[in-house]
Write a protein that binds this DNA or RNA. Structure first.
Length: 275
DNA sequence: AGAGTACCCTGCCAGC
DNA sequence: TGCTGGCAGGGTACTC
């Protein structure tokens, strides 16, 4: 469920409550999510102070001197900071208990994930987990621009939407924001990635940065159950132009928006405005 | 190497 | 009201 803006919103909500706190314990209510939860999470994390909450792509990292807990929210995961005695609900799979700090009482960082497509893994100090090793640039960084997309895409026959959603190309652009950025740039999602011009990739890169940045400002997109760690919903959904609007009038020309599966993922676009 | 497919799991919604 | 089928924002692993 969460794309980059949702994960970044989660990180920003978490950081003030988690950074500087000492982990007092870890409770696993099941041994695995997408993958088994490694022993280090239980054996090394307790007693450590969380130095920082970082994000890389859609992964969150809780840095400590002993290593980093590596979390992914998958499609249905969420993290909440709660009072330590908050009752457990369905799909609350993992608790990272946090000591009191200052005048604030004990807290628990609780990982809920109904579909269990998320993960909780371990990254030793100074190492990069193999899941992070081949990721593309952050879309809001200087390494990402239209020239980069143009160069990388030469010779690629896959649809440009599939290309954009490949995390080795650029991270954090999922189904929603790929559809929105292509709509805003006037590029058909079906066009072969290798057949998009440099000029249009510049426009596309600009739109990706603009839309992602704006969505972060708005607290992410609320779809079904996404909530920030403080329980506030995102407000971006009402601003979506294409995603979820198949059959409705195009916001630009009024013709019905098309909907079809591209690379197994539902895509919405305007056959008139996007070429 | 790149492209395409299958699969992981539960919840929710529309339609009957 | 209850059942069924289809769909959902993630990513990996496998084949060709």
């Amino acid at each position: 469920m969460p794309e980059l803006p949702e994960v970044e919103t989660t990180r920003r909500g978490l950081a003030p409550h988690v950074e500087g706190r000492r982990v007092s314990g870890v409770v696993l209510r099941r041994p695995d999510l997408r993958w088994p939860i490694p022993y280090e999470v239980v054996s090394l994390l307790p007693g450590q102070r969380v130095e920082a909450v970082r994000r890389r792509a859609k992964y969150l990292l809780l840095d400590t001197a002993a290593g980093s807990a590596l979390l992914h929210l998958g499609m249905s995961g969420s993290l909440r900071v709660l009072p330590a005695d908050t009752p457990v609900r369905a799909h609350d799979h993992v608790d990272i208990a946090l000591d009191p700090i200052g005048r604030q009482g004990a807290r628990v960082l609780r990982f809920n994930d109904p579909r269990r497509f998320g993960c909780l893994l371990w990254q030793p100090p100074g190492q990069t987990h193999e899941l992070l090793a081949d990721l593309g640039p952050e879309p809001l960084s200087d390494r990402f621009d239209g020239d980069y997309l143009f160069t990388l895409s030469r010779g690629r026959s896959a649809p440009v939407k599939t290309f954009l959603m490949d995390q080795r190309v650029v991270v954090g652009v999922g189904n929603i924001y790929a559809a929105e950025a292509l709509f805003a740039s006037g590029i058909s999602p079906l066009r072969a990635a290798g057949k998009v011009s440099r000029e249009r990739y510049r426009r596309l890169a600009d739109e990706i940065r603009r839309i992602l940045g704006h969505a972060i400002e708005r607290g992410g997109t609320t779809l079904r159950d996404f909530l920030a760690p403080d329980g506030a919903p995102g407000y971006f959904e009402q601003e979506l132009s294409a995603y979820g609007r198949g059959g409705e009038p195009c916001p630009r020309c009024g013709r019905p928006l098309k909907q079809a599966a591209i690379g197994q993922r539902t895509t919405v676009w305007c056959g008139h405005c996007q070429k």
